[in-house]
Nucleic acid binder design. Structure first.
Lengths: 193, 193
DNA sequence: CAAATGACCAAATTAGTATTTTGGTCAGTC
DNA sequence: GACTGACCAAAATACTAATTTGGTCATTTG
């Protein structure tokens, strides 16, 4: 009957953070949701922030997993990058927890939450940077600074997925792939017909 | 002795908005700074927002002027776009009023101020969009959707000028020009040596 | 006796309120 | 009749009381 208490706590906290965000989640509430005395939480986690840390760590792992799944070795660099980036940002856009977190980080500005946002973004960056590095090695793309390149890729996708549709009809996944190809891969030069 | 009262008011208000932002600027203060009774302001402007409107309109005009100055017909499209975009974002970054406004819009979220931010961004977009349209006509670049293209240009420059240097050493004007050339104009395909 | 608990506490938040300030008006001045 | 500043309702702020919160630890429980 006595399930793994730690797992219960993490599960309950994940649900609460997803539903109410970081600030509005109280340790009392987590304890009740987890059917556990409040003190018990503190035998597994030093404090609220560390509990949140672990949950974000899980989230990042899930997101990386989703991105990795989107990649298929026999497809080209371009197609893989598109699938992976789209997947990660879709993830960020659809999962309750990321929605709440990014929202809270932006409008309330909780420092703990902002750190986590940065962590998530940094993780996406590393993932893409690695792919770019490999593509350069394999001469699939022109040589370039992998960090700046990954940075540009991500900023472009975020712009298309989040910013563009704040005042315009959203772009489909295919449209975004085309734009990525046109602007970043092909380039605008050479008006050859 | 009795200078143009309206001009005085605008001048005083500009100074106050630049110094304290929209919310923290009071009509009493503007009146005092302009050496004018408070009621007088309301003979020229319906309310605080309209006064602010006019000042932002001036700001936009100045910014467009700066951008237009950066353009020289005998230089290529690429160089001109770079100079114009850089100039506008530099303007936004250096002018007391834009700094205050964008800051207040972000952290306090005053609706009036956010509208103005949007207005400024929309204006930059139109300016660039027009340049892109002309470049396509003249076959200086590959055919493409001018709005999306202008959007990408701006997002990329904002990323490089504002976002990149939040956690990394800033990029020089030349570096940004090179990156713009590499990613958008040339493209990453074809690893020709 | 080790693991779990919840009453407990200082510190932080929030709710409630009195006070001040603000955008805007308009009767009166010059 | 252009201009003013005392005036007002509404909004913002400062202040305080009351509540809630993260975290602890003496006590209980299995």
């Amino acid at each position: 009957m006595t399930f793994d208490r730690r797992a219960h706590i993490v599960e309950a906290a994940t649900r609460s953070f997803s539903l109410f965000g970081y600030k509005a989640t109280t340790m009392d509430q987590v304890a009740k949701l987890a059917n556990v005395g409040k003190g018990t939480i503190y035998t597994f986690f030093k404090n609220k922030e560390e509990l949140f840390d672990e949950i974000v760590e899980n989230l990042i792992a899930d997101m990386k997993h989703a991105a990795a799944e989107a990649i298929e070795p026999d497809r080209g660099f371009q197609e893989n990058i598109h699938q992976a980036l789209y997947r990660m940002l879709e993830f960020r856009k659809e999962h309750q927890l990321t929605i709440k977190i990014f929202q809270e980080g932006q409008e309330v500005g909780t420092p703990v939450v902002q750190e986590m946002m940065d962590r998530v973004e940094q993780e996406i960056l590393s993932f893409i940077e690695e792919k770019v590095r490999k593509a350069i090695e394999r001469k699939q793309i022109r040589p370039c600074d992998p960090e700046k390149t990954a940075f540009v890729f991500i900023k472009m996708y975020i712009s298309f997925i989040f910013d563009w549709e704040r005042k315009r009809p959203p772009l489909s996944k295919e449209e975004i792939a085309e734009l990525f190809d046109l602007y970043i891969i092909q380039g605008l030069s050479r008006s050859d017909s």
